[in-house]
Design a protein around this nucleic acid. Structure first.
Lengths: 342, 342
DNA sequence: AATAGCACTCAACACAATAGAGTGCTAACA
DNA sequence: TGTTAGCACTCTATTGTGTTGAGTGCTATT
């Protein structure tokens, strides 16, 4: 069957209306609200065709039609218009993330919050983390007689603290010497522990062997850590009638709690950087996500890549959300550049 | 009116049953399930008295009774039995928080998670922060040509990173000299910025004035930061029938989003440290909390005090929750001592 | 090909009837 | 005088029954 331009117009009307109201759309509604110049009977026939093509479906016999995943897919790929973000929202986004933020994790939290607030959906942001972001240097700072902080800086300038305890802690100068020796080691061997080399290094700081060993352990631990995941605006989901049933709401909350699922969902993107991707309902092949859509993109922090996703009902405002997300990512990259002094 | 021992037994039966089932308790239920040796008619008379005393109330004329805030209060203060935490739960708690945790913030997160999982209520933990936890020392670590990390250590050994950017960054030795000078300054003047002294210090590092100024700004910022608040298990709340109405659930979520309300709620404790406090429903004087109870205590990290609260419906299992919370706080303090090498 | 008309379907709503849990009161009893 | 059995009464929750209205699909007509 052919997808005539009239069928497309009807499909578009159905989707537009359904996104706005959340109610199944009937033929009479379309003939009255959208000036297609054809009667409801004709629209009925066309709708029957659209249903055969799998683009729309009926919740029950005597209800109007709602778009199917396939229908939404066609809509976002070919029909969806461009939404321009109003000046004030644009400014709001920019202000919220550029005001005085010195730490990247705060920045990501603010980003998540801003997006959630503007879109009224739930937002998920993953920490920027490269698959192999090498450790570049460490620095040891004494805290008290039994503890040191190891400050680590990676290739892509991610800074992190690890507190290490040991019975015996060297003084300022020895700590500096240790830092230097370990940095030297790192530049030679990377952060995989080379038994032999590490052994000789340990020997040279024998009285502080316990601490040295802990440093090595911490260094090799760092590689294995999975990236943090922030969520925001989860409660927004409760505003949508499709989740007014407490069981459905629970399901959504359960998903948003499973950081590893979210991480994988966002990470797995075949397309290049900077592009916006959309996963509609069942397309994720996860039954728990069949009523949810995800609009996502990535941002970069040095060599590290992080992901931003917006999760809402399949009936979400794709056009607006995509635009807001794009705008946000641009601002975010600007701010990151400013912070990291690109 | 007098509170005879029989009245107390009836009140206890009502509360026990209501906590377990969530259904209003009738006189017949009590006479059958609890061996008080009196008829339902007698119990009815006593219940009428208990209602006059404000300890129980009726949702509507032909329903059973439910405890009032005042009833719960009497229960937790005078009747509630001791619950002993099962060995395996005790071990679960200990394991979850003691496995390999080097950073205090992870520890607090784990604590919140463990409590939420074991109690099936929502958990709130505030970061340990003394009212006036003085900065003790800083250390500057170069990241790249335009940025340094300032590692700060407070009197109570709280370690924090702040990234600072400046056009010009000194080399390793000068950074060390700056750290030393600023530490000296701190030990003399504390972290309130003394215009005069700071001015002369800025002069001595003139070529790096921008950086020095940022350091001072960061130092004085640190004082004003309010403590972080973690929540966990918020979704548990959805399991309780009293929140199966989506509007009520929304209300709870809204509360748990407002970190400042939570912070104040937990902070304001007149009693000493280590004690467990209970706020029942309307006792908080916050209308949004009238259907919720909070069981809370504090933990200490050096001189810093943090708070742990468990939030559930007023019909929560006070006895179990108090015990689990006590147990957890003990384990937590042990782990903290181990980490901070008390 | 488009449409008007019509019979049909089905969810949603309103309404009444019923069942059941629980109360309060009264009168009788120990 | 405290306790209890009995009974009328109340109110929610449930179930069943129309009724309404939105929407469809089919057919006959233009």
């Amino acid at each position: 069957m052919d997808l005539s331009s009239r069928k497309i117009k009807i499909l578009e009307a159905i989707i537009t209306d359904y996104i706005k109201t959340g109610d199944p759309v009937g033929s009479r509604t379309i003939s009255k609200k959208y000036p297609l110049g054809i009667s409801s009977a004709t629209i009925r026939n066309e709708m029957s065709d659209l249903e055969d093509m799998g683009l729309i479906c009926q919740p029950h016999t005597s209800a109007g039609r709602i778009p199917s995943d396939k229908g939404y897919r066609l809509y976002v790929d070919r029909l969806m218009g461009h939404y321009s973000v109003p000046e004030e929202e644009s400014i709001f986004l920019r202000d919220l993330i550029s005001s005085n933020i010195s730490r990247i994790d705060y920045l990501m939290e603010q980003t998540a919050k801003a997006l959630a607030r503007l879109t009224n959906y739930a937002t998920v942001v993953t920490e920027a983390k490269a698959e192999n972001d090498r450790l570049r240097k460490i620095s040891l700072v004494g805290v008290d007689e039994h503890s040191v902080v190891m400050v680590s800086v990676t290739e892509s300038k991610k800074v992190e603290n690890t507190i290490l305890r040991a019975a015996k802690i060297p003084d300022f100068d020895v700590l500096n010497a240790m830092s230097a020796a370990i940095n030297n080691y790192i530049s030679l061997y990377g952060c995989e522990i080379n038994e032999e080399a590490a052994g000789s290094l340990l020997k040279s700081f024998r009285p502080y062997g316990e601490l040295a060993a802990k440093i090595f352990a911490a260094i090799s631990d760092m590689e294995n850590k999975s990236s943090d995941v922030y969520t925001s605006g989860v409660n927004n989901i409760l505003e949508y009638p499709e989740f007014s049933d407490i069981e459905k709401a629970k399901n959504v909350f359960r998903i948003l709690e499973q950081k590893d699922i979210l991480r994988n969902l966002l990470k797995d993107n075949s397309c290049g950087s900077g592009t916006v991707q959309i996963i509609i309902g069942g397309e994720s092949n996860l039954s728990q996500l069949k009523d949810l859509s995800i609009i996502k993109t990535n941002y970069s922090l040095g060599n590290n890549i992080g992901f931003i996703g917006i999760i809402g009902p399949t009936r979400m405002n794709y056009s607006q959300t995509v635009s807001v997300l794009k705008e946000m990512t641009e601002s975010l990259n600007e701010v990151i550049n400013k912070i990291t002094g690109g």
